[in-house]
């Protein structure tokens, strides 16, 4: 009995030890980022002795970043893009997914196959022709281009459909018998039930749009259209040795995604469990 208890204790200890190491690996870069963001440039690489919190934290870094580059403009563009893309993505893909999951219609399989086939197609394979096409639509250097690019992904439709499949058909049937229209069923029954899936899709889309680099790099050229990622990269190139400032900018770029993630994370594992896996 005693040895059993000891064994349990030992295994618990090892478990926590592993967790502690993993946590350290995960979080140390972020702590370094935070710590450097309030340091002077020459303090950043001071290793012997290394201090996490400098004696005189340099909060000015957080002020300077707004004045040295049009950071506010970048934030504005990124927030705008992210919200519109995420909104459109959720709206249109949950809409389409409902049809694929719960309705019968001709060519359903064929259309769905078109979606599935492109999930495996890396965007990079067709980014060049896509760029040429967008250009001819006059969408070059327009925020709208990024919206068109990101808002109608096959992935979203697929993810939502998987979730809807797990909702019993009998629910819809019952509502149909009660005379509810398909739009009503979608809005009043399916949507409220699909919170975890919507949360998952929101996180994915939000993170992908917020952090996208190559898309904006190709489409957004003028200074006042740049997103945070492009701006931050440009800033790093320009002020390469002002480590403190770079880290302050980096910290700022993380805050919104982390907020969104923390707000939605409780639905998250549940969402993935009911959507991604059984595909």
């Amino acid at each position: 009995m005693v040895s059993n208890k000891a064994l349990k204790f030992l295994s618990k200890t090892i478990l926590y030890l592993i967790l502690a190491i993993m946590t350290a690996i995960m979080i140390l870069p972020f702590l370094w980022m935070l710590s450097s963001s309030v340091k002077l440039d020459r303090e950043v690489f001071n290793m012997n002795p290394f201090v996490w919190i400098p004696e005189n934290p340099r909060w000015k870094n957080y002020v300077d970043i707004w004045t040295k580059v049009p950071f506010f403009k970048y934030v504005q563009n990124t927030v705008f893009l992210t919200i519109v893309v995420t909104g459109l993505q959720i709206l249109t893909s949950s809409f389409a997914a409902y049809a694929f999951a719960k309705l019968d219609f001709s060519h359903k399989n064929r259309i769905f196959f078109a979606y599935i086939a492109t999930i495996a197609m890396p965007w990079q394979v067709y980014m060049v022709p896509q760029f040429l096409m967008m250009r001819s639509f006059g969408l070059n250097d327009k925020l709208l281009a990024i919206i068109c690019l990101q808002a109608f992904s096959a992935f979203g439709v697929f993810l939502m459909r998987q979730f809807y499949l797990s909702i019993p058909d009998s629910l819809c049937e019952a509502a149909r018998i009660d005379g509810m229209s398909e739009y009503g069923i979608y809005a009043k029954i399916m949507l409220p039930l699909s919170k975890p899936a919507i949360a998952t899709l929101t996180i994915f889309t939000f993170v992908a749009t917020w952090n996208d680099y190559l898309g904006p790099l190709i489409y957004l050229k003028s200074q006042d259209k740049k997103t945070i990622q492009l701006g931050l990269k440009m800033f790093i190139n320009q002020y390469s040795s002002e480590y403190g400032l770079i880290m302050a900018g980096s910290v700022m770029s993380l805050i919104p995604v982390i907020i969104v993630f923390l707000a939605l994370q409780k639905y998250f594992v549940e969402g993935i469990a009911s959507t991604g896996i059984k595909g």
């Binding site: 504005q76 563009n77 519109v84 327009k142 925020l143 709208l144 068109c148 003028s222 006042d224 259209k225």
Partner: peptide
């Protein structure tokens, strides 16, 4: 509706374009 939404959304960019 979609195009209008898209149209509106492109505005903040184009106002300050050049």
């Amino acid at each position: 509706a979609v195009t209008m939404l898209a149209g509106c959304s492109s505005q903040p960019g184009s106002v300050t374009a050049t």
